[in-house]
């Protein structure tokens, strides 16, 4: 009884009623600048893109055409071709990023000599702006005067210069290789951080039990990195599927559409063909694909957090 009396005399500081409402308003007030900024740079352009995808744009005039742009895009073989190119580009790039990133991280985790210098060195492709990296590769791969052909010819590996960006197969291989070169450090960095969180006691116990290097990797390293690798792969897919810069600079989507991933098709449709409505429709379709992977990412991270809490 006395407890009840005491409680009623204390001012209302609980997270209910007017106090909570006031606190909430303060919270929204502090968040407002950020929310307004995000609305200006994300929500409005996104809304504009959706709106554009329902319009037939001719220069400065536009007409509402409903889903006609989507129908035209989906009926066009160029879209499905680009989708296939995108799938190939993303699959090969992400698998290579993860495998090479993991291998490099394992190696760097072991190395003690010049560790910092090596880490910086391996991070360089990621630190260089994609446009700059692509331009450097463009000249390295130049058929007549490029260093790559010069080295291969000097070593007797090839007898005549190869037009790396001139044929569909080699052009696709070249832009994928450059994407791999650029993307590996990101996965390496994440994996290296993950490796350093694995308790050393697990490896010590395994050594006492006589486990081989492979067994330690298979039963300790991989299970500990599993969550991180899945998250990193998902983030990498979201990242790579949107990439335009490397392909835009090196091939523009050519030759004959061999490297025309969806962002390249979008760019070419908008700025070469001047069909902004269709380009916006391609953008919305691309966004929906990215959202699928983003949903996967959110689900994986939520499950991971729940596992951590348990």
């Amino acid at each position: 009884m006395s407890n009840t009396t005491t409680t009623t005399n204390i001012p209302d500081r609980s997270w209910t009623g007017r106090g909570l409402a006031r606190e909430r308003w303060h919270g929204y007030l502090f968040l407002a600048p950020t929310l307004l900024f995000l609305a200006a740079v994300i929500v409005l352009p996104l809304f504009h893109a959706f709106w554009t995808s329902f319009q037939r744009i001719r220069g400065l005039s536009s007409t509402f055409v409903g889903f006609a742009n989507y129908v035209r895009v989906l009926e066009d073989e160029a879209f499905w071709h680009s989708l296939r190119v995108s799938l190939g580009f993303v699959s090969i790039s992400v698998v290579a990023h993860v495998l090479l990133g993991l291998l490099l991280a394992l190696a760097l985790n072991k190395i003690t000599f010049a560790r910092t210098a090596l880490r910086v060195l391996f991070l360089t492709p990621w630190m260089v702006a994609a446009a700059v990296g692509a331009t450097i590769w463009l000249w390295l791969l130049e058929p007549q005067f490029g260093v790559i052909n010069y080295i291969l010819q000097s070593a007797g590996i090839i007898s005549a210069p190869i037009a790396w960006l001139g044929t569909p197969g080699t052009a696709f291989a070249a832009v994928t290789t450059v994407e791999i070169w650029r993307g590996v450090p990101f996965i390496m960095l994440l994996t290296l951080a993950g490796l350093q969180t694995i308790p050393a006691e697990q490896y010590e116990a395994a050594e006492i039990d006589g486990a081989t290097t492979w067994q330690k990797f298979r039963h300790i390293t991989l299970p500990n990195l599993k969550y991180l690798l899945v998250v990193a792969s998902t983030l990498d897919i979201i990242n790579v599927v949107r990439h335009y810069d490397i392909i835009g600079i090196m091939t523009g989507g050519g030759p004959a559409g061999a490297t025309e991933v969806l962002p390249a098709l979008l760019y070419n449709t908008a700025f070469r063909a001047n069909r902004f409505g269709e380009a916006a429709a391609i953008g919305v379709l691309l966004l929906s694909m990215v959202l699928v992977f983003a949903a996967m990412y959110l689900r994986i991270t939520r499950v991971g957090q729940e596992d951590d809490r348990r």
Partner: peptide, 16 residues
Amino acid sequence: ASPAPTTTNYLEQTVL
């Protein structure tokens, strides 16, 4: 004709 015609433009042509 010189190799790599699918990547040859004004720039490459004049350099060659």
